[in-house]
Each structure stands twice: as C-alpha cells, then as structure tokens.
Amino acid sequence: MLRSIFTAIFLFALWYLMSGIDKTLTLVLGAGSSVFAVWIVRRMDEASNFKCLSVHLRPIEFGKYIFWVLAEIAKSNWTVIKIVLSPNMDIKQKMYEVPFTQKSDLGQAVFANTITLTPGTITVEVEADHFLVHGLSYSFDDHAALAEMDRRVSKTEGIVDL
C-alpha cells in the first residue's frame, strides 16, 4: 500500500514537472491519471508470474554512484574513440564471466545496464550467479575494474524497502 502511494506521488510530480500548468482542471486530471497508472501497474504485477519488483536502494549512495559512473563513461569513451580513430584497429575481443554479488533483481539489472552503458563492455547473457560479458579491448585489468563496479553497486543496495 505504501509502495502504491509513493508511486502515485512520484508519477504526479512527474506530471506536474512535464506540464507546468497550474490550472485546477489539469491538476485534477493529473491526479486521476497517476492513480489510474498505479492501478494498471498493480494489476500487471498480479497478472504475471514475476511478482513485484522489490526496491532496495539508498538514494544518497545511488547519487554518488551516478557521478562515479559518469566519470567511468568518460574514460571508457576515450578508450573506444582511440580505437575507432587509429588506422589499424587494435581489437582484442574476449568473452569472460563476471560474478555479481547483488541480491535484488533491481540491483542486478542496474549492474548489468552499467556494464553495457560503459563503451567497451557489453553484458551478453545473465546466468544464475554471473554475467557473460563481451569486452572490446580485453586486458587483465578489466576484471579488477568490473569487481570495483560490482562493489559500488552492492553498496547502493540497502534498507529502503518498498
């Protein structure tokens, strides 16, 4: 129940920031729309065999994590750009396994999407306890870098449970 209320408030804030119109009619329509959206989402949660997505995230840690990810993206972009622009493209492709330590589904999805978002590594397959990752210019340091990322994602998982 608390989760539905928070989702509705979040969706209404989104509505207000998107429209930016203060008229009563628009605000009432916005409130009705967010309640309707929450109702549909609850129905969808009940209908599928994959139950509610549990949200365990620490907001402040997650904010710090985003800034760290932006720095990582800048670094790995530079690496890939150098490979694209060099005349003989120095590609050392390799598929390797990266273990993950996150417990919730959302944490695992965040980790997998971060791996894909940094150019140079792509999550190919999700197995029971590891990801299959494809690297563009593989070196042995990649394991350490990805373990560091794994540690940071695990730190964002926390007590907030909706």
Binding site: I73, A74, N77, V80, I81, V84, T116, L117, T118, P119, G120, I122, L136
Partner: peptide
C-alpha cells in the same frame, strides 16, 4: 561497442 559510444557519450 561503437554504437554504445553514441548511446552514452
């Protein structure tokens, strides 16, 4: 990987 440069940077 080249397409992901467009997607991120």
């Amino acid at each position: 990987h080249a397409a992901s440069v467009t997607d991120s940077g």
